[in-house]
Design a protein around this nucleic acid. Sequence first.
DNA 1: TAGTTCGTGGAATGTTTATTCTAAGTCCAT
DNA 2: ATGGACTTAGAATAAACATTCCACGAACTA
Lengths: 280, 280
Amino acid sequence: MPTKASALQHGTYENLRHEIARQHPDFSDRLRVIAEFALEHPTEMALGTVAEVAQRAKVQPSAIVRFARALGYGGFTELQQVFRSRLVASVPPSYKERITGLRRDGRFQDANNPQAVLTRFASEGMVSLESLQDRVRQVDLARAIELLGAAETIYVLGLGGSFPVAAHLTYVLRKLGRRVVILDGLGSALGDQAASATPADALVAISFRVYNPDTARLFPELVARRLPVISITDSLLSPIVEGASVVFEIPDMPEAALRTMVAPMCLAQTLAVGLTLTLD
Amino acid sequence: MPTKASALQHGTYENLRHEIARQHPDFSDRLRVIAEFALEHPTEMALGTVAEVAQRAKVQPSAIVRFARALGYGGFTELQQVFRSRLVASVPPSYKERITGLRRDGRFQDANNPQAVLTRFASEGMVSLESLQDRVRQVDLARAIELLGAAETIYVLGLGGSFPVAAHLTYVLRKLGRRVVILDGLGSALGDQAASATPADALVAISFRVYNPDTARLFPELVARRLPVISITDSLLSPIVEGASVVFEIPDMPEAALRTMVAPMCLAQTLAVGLTLTLD
DNA sequence: TAGTTCGTGGAATGTTTATTCTAAGTCCAT
DNA sequence: ATGGACTTAGAATAAACATTCCACGAACTA
């Protein structure tokens, strides 16, 4: 019964991964457990003995062998060879290291290659996260969390390019059990959405150049209603600074290709999680 | 004179290399041959059996064992562990290592301090961006951009925790002049929103554990309608893999406090910008 | 040259390891 | 409920394995 002839084209590790994923739904209970373990712990598959792997995956040794056979291999030993090939392939011939190191620096290669674009954005993201760590002051963080903790309802305002940050903050806060209203302007009802905000609530406003006009219009109204405000923006000259209780200034990088939302996302997440952690 | 006592501090692979080099002149003929072989073929030392290594080095199996003992190990098996450690260390280029490094720095201590939370998220973000650079394959990127370029309308599906990523991708693509429909399920009209999608369009699906049920439900329908699909997810076992033309797998970090959307955001941005750059 | 030490090859040994087999168990369809 | 197909756990087995042992031989010493 040559069940899986396709697997016999003893392909690379990547082929094996896809083959496992493909067959995953058809596997029996135990085999599925092993499939998941194998994909998540390829190193242990490569180096462990059948007994060790079985113990880590919490199945019987015989199940491991069945798994190998189900994929078309003669036994565990054959299957293991493929996992080992991954280890061997990943050993840096030492010059490869430098190439990828350079690539990480970003100033390498012309920008018309998609990989270079990825490298660039990833590098910019890392830089912005690093500077976020340096710039954000302990006191601002503590004060912002205090305000959020005291709020009955948290209003989140972030439109245009900042909307994903607002959405993420809203999502995490709600997961953590907070009452949150996101001011998304759905149905052009931005003003109405914010109508019931009181000084017992709080506002998190997020805006970066070019500043969204609706944000700029609504913000002063909410300030006038004496809500405590936490602003996340890129400059002290932005329209959401005046009247804010706490301002997090995350300037854009001098020559960034496109505003990256990585740092604001990270800060938003920190506020949300920090809130629950410090309330205990 | 306890010459070999130093080797007993079962150190790392690098320590072992130096120890072998140091003792090399004092070794007997056969042992010297093995020492040279070991330094030049560390991978075979890590993965081979005694018999295999002996054959490759053109010595007797017993000589291999003697070599291990001469270095202060109990036998070949113990020695081999050190060579294996080199393989496992080289596979995740930084990733976990960096995190545990940070943890050792004490920068992770007492997570109740908001600053520590920020540091933690920022660090995890940086690590995930770094591994994104390494994991994303050139061909996948090129293929994905090709699909997006050929699409009349781009549909974006990302719900729950992935919604911010979908929102960001939508925003950037629209700024760059693409026709985009975001499937946000507004008014519970998820199905209707996707009703007009044809094979001339394309879908970008984004989903991470725990997978949103609506995403899992809608995805196969769109696949059945033969749309080219680009999936961004965390595992090949996720519900949005089967039927996808391109899959970007961004696994979660082993001990992440909370799924960070930093890497997916960055990838989304790369796709959008890469699309316009490569069309010139 | 005779005696001693040390290195070596190769077979013998006892252990670990993968694999196979069978009885028991589970799940469905009837 | 009952029969049948399919899984599974665990012991049994056979192969592979690292290690030990010992006899032989080379090199050095007296």
